[in-house]
């Protein structure tokens, strides 16, 4: 009985909700439609809670670091303080629109957010200089295509030679698109196979087993 409640019923719920969504799409039956709509709306509410799981983990991990006074526990304290401050300001009236909440977003959060991602440009250049080694025919193809595409994306290249944007466009629209099409078709088949495994209860990893 305990095994049924702990494992079998959740697996049945997975199969049931998946089949409901699929049947609703292909068979416009009022009962199916209203059940699917209700399930979807419930999932929307539940998903909000699942987004808070990460925050819970963050607080637990960083609180442990502070309690144990591990190296870097000062930064852990800073993480928790900034999280709590943002949370308090966000929940204070008007919710999500307090001027201080927006101020922190614009001047504390946005600059590092853009810069941390933008710094990858520096490492790309470094990788282009040091890591890109021509050893095989395929690596030559990769280098040549990447080079033409980089030049096609630079407006100055079109001023120097009109061929750059044309070649870049051709590479994107023909061989590259062919490769990505193959990815999509393969990934779609893989998604269907995985979906079938989930519906049949053969894939239990998502439920923490």
């Amino acid at each position: 009985m305990s095994k049924v409640i702990r494992r079998e019923i959740p697996l049945l719920l997975v199969s049931f909700s998946a089949i409901l969504m699929i049947l609703d799409y292909f068979f416009p039956v009022p009962v199916l439609s209203s059940s699917a709509k209700l399930t979807n709306e419930w999932v929307v509410v539940i998903a909000g809670f699942s987004l808070c799981l990460g925050a819970t983990d963050l607080i637990i991990v960083n609180t442990r670091r502070i309690m144990r006074k591990t190296p870097g526990s000062g930064y852990a304290l800073l993480i928790i303080i900034s999280f709590l401050l943002t949370l308090l300001l966000g929940l204070s009236s008007p919710m999500t629109k307090h001027p201080a909440f927006q101020w922190i977003y614009d001047y504390f959060y946005r600059p590092p957010a853009g810069t941390l991602y933008g710094m990858l440009a520096l490492y790309l250049v470094s990788a282009g200089w040091r890591a890109f080694k021509i050893r095989t025919f395929e690596s030559v193809i990769m280098l040549v295509c990447a080079w033409f595409l980089i030049m096609a994306n630079a407006p100055i290249a079109a001023v120097v030679w009109e061929g750059f944007p044309s070649i870049g466009k051709w590479i994107m629209d023909v061989p590259s698109a062919a490769g990505w099409r193959a990815f999509y078709i393969g990934a779609a088949i893989g998604t269907l196979a995985l979906g079938l495994k989930v519906i049949l209860g053969l894939e239990r990893g998502a439920l923490g087993e």
Binding site: A121, V125, M151, A157
Partner: peptide, 10 residues
């Protein structure tokens, strides 16, 4: 300018 530099580095 950055792309030309990158192309040269590559």
């Amino acid at each position: 300018t950055s792309h030309v530099l990158f192309a040269i580095c590559l």
